[in-house]
Design a protein around this nucleic acid. Sequence first.
DNA 1: GTCTATAGCGTGATAGAC
DNA 2: GTCTATCACGCTATAGAC
Lengths: 195, 195
Amino acid sequence: MARTQGSHSDITGPRIRKAALGLFARHGYAAVSMRQIAAEVGVQAGALYNYTPDKQSLLFHLMHEHMQELLSAYGELTQPENAFEALHQFVRFHIRFHLERPDEVFIAYMELRNLTPENFSEIEALRRKYEDALEAILRKGQGAALFDIADTKVATLAVIAMLNGVMTWYRAGGRLSLDEVEQNYWDMVRRSVSA
Amino acid sequence: MARTQGSHSDITGPRIRKAALGLFARHGYAAVSMRQIAAEVGVQAGALYNYTPDKQSLLFHLMHEHMQELLSAYGELTQPENAFEALHQFVRFHIRFHLERPDEVFIAYMELRNLTPENFSEIEALRRKYEDALEAILRKGQGAALFDIADTKVATLAVIAMLNGVMTWYRAGGRLSLDEVEQNYWDMVRRSVSA
DNA sequence: GTCTATAGCGTGATAGAC
DNA sequence: GTCTATCACGCTATAGAC
């Protein structure tokens, strides 16, 4: 399987990131060595440094790309005028997007402390932008008397935390279908903020 | 500060666990060395092995003790007959207990993958017992028509996930008092499951 | 019970051949 | 672009003096 010689600039890079993604998610950034990543790709450890200046950049790249994709995917949705519908769309989007990327999500939440301070700030800013999108919906619905929320910031974080919980237990092919899961969470989120 | 000789069997053990707790919470189990823990306690690395057979046992001990305390503290509460009141008590207990032990909670959630399979199973069983306590409340309230829940298992995990979210942002002395935080979350939890 | 010293190994990253 | 070889260092855990 693994070639021992030759040029693969176009495919080795993605394969390294994919291997790092899986290993970081499974064992944690600090517990994974560059040699392990190289072995999974089928190259020697030194070859990795043709694609990343260091291990930290590998982690940052994965997290940054994930957050950018999250924001751009959500940004492409057309926002319903009605805040109630907008919240419904957010809930469905959040669950579906995150369940499709378990490794990326896991890393984005668990490995924040292994980023350098500069890298941490950058990722944190992106995460904040996503939270702000939800908070804007809650504020709008509160203004329209659709919602009854004591504190929109707390509610924003509570809703996201509740939705993130689905990652810890949902497995495709389990007792509940994805649609049923979405319906379950939407029922709870809707009622938790409704007037 | 650090003694260089002498006997301290009665105090060094707890100090090691306390140092490990803080370092594991801040930097992660895999990223913390026995030398770092020893330095914080003020002894040499070799001395740690008078108190723990290895690093893994240190982690397991911290997580196991935390889960035991959680279960015993909750078990000491007198359970209200009314499921609505029982849920209210659970929410307040969960928030208060967890906010009092940020390091222990952080480790209990983040370091599960760094446990050996045997140790993982043991911790997981304790966590499951705690979840079962909440699920029993939801089932009881559902039976009494106090709650309207599509799936009690999903609701159990959703409520705990929502409540755990408070750990990521609450800081004593911040904008909201502990009582206000409890009230906010209780409002949301109550409505999310109410008939 | 703590120390010093060290065994045995793994780490991230680099140099130079091909 | 990948290889082999290596540097310089850190790691867990142990041995034996005190």
